[in-house]
Design a binder for these strands. Structure first.
Lengths: 141, 141
DNA sequence: TATAAATTTGAAATCGTTACAAAGTTACAA
DNA sequence: TTGTAACTTTGTAACGATTTCAAATTTATA
């Protein structure tokens, strides 16, 4: 069976055409797209697709834990179809988001649990300058 | 000298009346306020304060690293006057943000540095249910 | 095949944030 | 002190991401 359809079913989501298309886009692109990027990318193959459907679907996928929501960028929400644990880095200049391995030492949220908080998701974000932008800034000055 | 004024000067910020008031509010309140919360809170003591000034000032304080910007909530940016390293937890139900100690093991961003990324800030976020909301949900069901 | 339930759609509204230009304030040189 | 330039604050308008909502469409079920 289609791995995307299977993924949706595993998370209790009925695989409509739109939902499969959006989830497939996320699983095949590691670019951490925004709502608009997803909408524009699918536009050509699905001319009747509505922006609202993209919003609705992403909300559903989030609720069912079928994707990861990145709040690293305060201006736009980014989505990640890769739900394996990994950290993210965003360049403060070009705004690109990079995948970064999680530290070897486990971050298990025990400090939160110790104060009665029930942890469901953990996000590790870095920001700074990527290689490219750091080089350009160094040259400029 | 006033600790707030000193803090601003240490970060290369000229301490205007508005800037001191906003920075003071952040340093005296650990509630991770939003722009609107800060604006409304200072309204009474500074009737002429403009929302734009709050936005401008917070941008300046961010740029000069005089505060910490929390992007844990995708709907609203929260600000934290406490720049000592610590993690945050947001309850997915009541949206309250809690301070959590950083894990003992250092999170130093070496995995990012290893791929040429220059890390300037690190953010560790958890989400889930706080004690209160978890109890209420358990009772309801 | 009929009917109900679920899903999608597009337009309008909402709301946090930014742009911009005018008004006010501060710093500094004459 | 006074004049001038630089900086800061202010309010309005614009912007843009997201949500609301009701109608249209599709899917499931009796």
């Amino acid at each position: 069976m289609d791995i995307v359809v299977e993924h949706l079913k595993n998370h209790g989501i009925k695989p409509s055409v739109q939902r499969v298309a959006i989830m497939r886009y996320l699983m095949e692109h590691c670019s951490h797209p925004t709502v608009d990027a997803i909408y524009c990318a699918l536009q050509s193959s699905m001319p009747t697709l509505s922006r609202t459907t993209v919003y609705n679907t992403l909300s559903l996928l989030e609720e069912k834990d079928a994707l990861s929501v990145l709040t690293i960028d305060s201006r736009n929400i980014h989505y990640d179809g890769d739900t394996h644990p990994h950290a993210h880095f965003m360049c403060r200049r070009c705004k690109q988001i990079y995948d970064v391995p999680m530290p070897d030492v486990g971050i298990d949220g025990r400090e939160a649990a110790a104060q009665g908080l029930k942890v469901e998701h953990t996000h590790l974000y870095y920001d700074g300058l990527c290689d490219k932008c750091n080089g350009q800034l160094t040259m400029d000055n």
